[in-house]
Design a protein around this nucleic acid. Sequence first.
DNA 1: CGTCTATTTGAGCCCCGTCAAAGGCGGTGG
DNA 2: CCACCGCCTTTGACGGGGCTCAAATAGACG
Lengths: 245, 245
Amino acid sequence: MAHLIPNFERSVGLSAEDGGAIEQLRAAPTVDAPARSDIVREGDAPMAARLVLSGLACRYKDLPDGRRQIVGFFLPGDFCDLNVSLLRRMDHSIGAITQVRYLAIPPEQLHGLAEQRPRMAQALLRHELVAASIQREWLLNVGQRTARERVAHLLVELFVRLRAANLARGDTCDFPLTQTDLADATGITSVHVNRTLQELRRDGLIELASRKLRILDIERLKRLAMFNPNYLHLAHDGHAPDGES
Amino acid sequence: MAHLIPNFERSVGLSAEDGGAIEQLRAAPTVDAPARSDIVREGDAPMAARLVLSGLACRYKDLPDGRRQIVGFFLPGDFCDLNVSLLRRMDHSIGAITQVRYLAIPPEQLHGLAEQRPRMAQALLRHELVAASIQREWLLNVGQRTARERVAHLLVELFVRLRAANLARGDTCDFPLTQTDLADATGITSVHVNRTLQELRRDGLIELASRKLRILDIERLKRLAMFNPNYLHLAHDGHAPDGES
DNA sequence: CGTCTATTTGAGCCCCGTCAAAGGCGGTGG
DNA sequence: CCACCGCCTTTGACGGGGCTCAAATAGACG
């Protein structure tokens, strides 16, 4: 587990001197959620912020008749619902795709941490801003791109994020999403996701089988998806604290 | 203009005792943007947070080939890009639908305010969380609902938000959006928006003409749209400050 | 009263959804 | 080691919701 917290540090832009903050976080209880279980349901009262240590989770919303939209994925190092104690009811659900291990951080601990360590608070806020930016790109994806472009874009995004989290090796990464998951995330049918994936395979862009994704031609895939990495804000280039560039 | 800042206070959940903070905000320069102009372009370095005083603005993203997705609307009292100084480049654009008057608040002023007045900081954070929640509902809207449902949902949301901002009279409100705007916000074609609006009119649900919207049957419209108001978090029911309910 | 933008209408068709069933694959137990 | 089971993937036929292209009409504004 030790290697997973650094993953969070990087994603959040903390340097080693903030290690003490990390130590405090590790005091929070670790929880395991089985694959395909719900971690939080819409309508619940928010109980804790969650820091994903391992596994893949998603945030989703559904309609009374069963239609379901995945609105985001949580990779190891990602926070769910950081500031959730400011709102009374959850407006979305969180589900585990694979088995998920996470830290359940009580609101008081989070508040205390934020007050003691302003840079930590800033880093957490930044993390939320990036999440909101990704949400916007998804809306563009679902609203404007064709099925091919949508699937390609999602694959590229996940691959880039997994690589940034050190969870890819070369051009390959684990890929636990089913085609139904991809369908719910892109707003197309699982049947059509299947045909779209076959096209991408036929065009020599990807390999995808038995939960492994291999990107054969990332440049062509990015062009097809009109992928502009800016929205991920991967470079930590905001206000560099204390003048260190 | 005096009546517009209270509109912001309510939307953000501040009580009268925070009036001093409001006064400080009014020190920021007021700017007018002409209708149909861009206020911020994707790729710009973020310069200031903006508090809309009057008019209607939107946040949008576009693709290299011209396709465009509106990802949110800013009503009077709404903040754009509150914490934008934490990210180096804008990942989206902001455009004025009508003429828009806003306060341009420099980052330093905002930071100072947040430090002096923790309740203000909390209120601003809450505002951002609600904006993120609305984004998620939009993704559900565009990803899962049919054209009829999408348009109905957007109309209900805008009406409810305008009413909450005291910008509706009875069942009627100003509605400056063109059918092209509605199309860009819902991910359908303007031609199809037109036909969809005609259906809603034929079914006795709305009247919409010459920039005026009238809701004839809000309950039926909500049912059609599967509108669940939770996501707007309109009741200020988070941490009630200092025990006042 | 001309110009510009927004709305409306029509015809044709294609992308993607629906429904249904078959096949593959991993896990489990006998 | 095989048989079975559940889930996921794949395939086919068909239909329809929404897109495209194009042009006509209606309003807004000077």
